[in-house]
């Protein structure tokens, strides 16, 4: 619990961090909760580990990256329960990073070389890429997500192809991203996938606030954290973008 959890508190689900928690992506949840608190808005973080029930009534669902075998276990758990899909269809906001994005797609090829069905929330499918993409990633986002460049660190071996119903999160300025057509991530309704670790929302405060605005229905007051500005400047420069 954080701030003033009440009827208006934002409920954030951290989905299967024990399976999809290899790359620090739980930090996205910490960032959202703190940015709400700093504006006097309450939040409640619900952490759901494997074997536990995913509630269908959260406002935001966060999934992270994970190891190949754990990814297969995670998708099985989520498919059996069905509640994440229900929540997304109801209009909850979902941010899924790396392996998290892959399992929300229609299919992905696992470490076993076999194609597995995903949850189908994103019209994307993922296949192995010849060489693992590791390094700084910079993306110019779709205007719906603001004009601030997205910075992050990617570490994945999947090539993600977009189908007709999904659009990219943005255009790659540095790094690999999806590995197809110079684009990164996927957006479909209020479900967003990306390869940006860092964590993504720690490095990209405007993107974090965009997600919160989607949930609260109002633009949030500006918030200045000088260390975040310093980090962004440094990382964008390291990627050769500024």
């Amino acid at each position: 619990m954080n701030g003033n959890p009440g009827p208006s508190a934002v409920r954030i689900a951290l989905v299967l961090p024990d399976m999809l928690g290899t790359y620090g992506d739980r930090g996205n949840v910490a960032v959202l909760a703190e940015r709400l608190r700093l504006r006097g808005i309450g939040s409640e973080v619900v952490e759901i580990n494997a074997g536990e029930f995913v509630p269908a009534d959260c406002d935001l669902y966060m999934l992270g990256g994970g190891e190949d075998v754990a990814q297969l276990v995670a998708v099985r758990h989520l498919r059996q329960q069905g509640t994440l899909v229900q929540a997304a269809r109801r209009g909850a906001v979902v941010l899924a990073v790396c392996a998290g994005m892959q399992i929300l797609g229609t299919s992905f090829v696992g470490s076993d070389g076999v194609a597995h069905g995903g949850l189908g929330l994103l019209d994307v499918n993922t296949r192995p890429m010849p060489k693992r993409a590791i390094g700084e990633l910079v993306v110019r986002p779709d205007p719906a997500f603001g004009d601030e460049l997205l910075t992050g660190f990617e570490n994945h071996g999947g090539c993600t192809y977009l189908g007709q119903d999904a659009r990219p999160l943005g255009a790659v300025l540095a790094g690999v991203g999806n590995g197809v057509n110079g684009v990164e991530g996927a957006v479909q309704g209020r479900v967003i996938g990306t390869y940006l670790h860092g964590p993504c929302l720690a490095r990209n405060p405007a993107f974090a606030d965009r997600l919160l605005a989607m949930v609260t229905g109002t633009e949030l007051a500006p918030l200045s954290i000088p260390e975040v500005d310093a980090l962004r400047t440094e990382r964008l420069r390291a990627a050769g973008v500024r």
């Binding site: 954290i225 260390e227 310093a230 440094e234």
Partner: peptide, 17 residues
């Protein structure tokens, strides 16, 4: 240092960089 400073800021730890 900036990565660590941001981490600590969000952990509500007073930090100088």
């Amino acid at each position: 240092a900036a990565d660590m400073a941001v981490r600590l800021r969000y952990a509500r730890v007073d930090v100088t960089m």
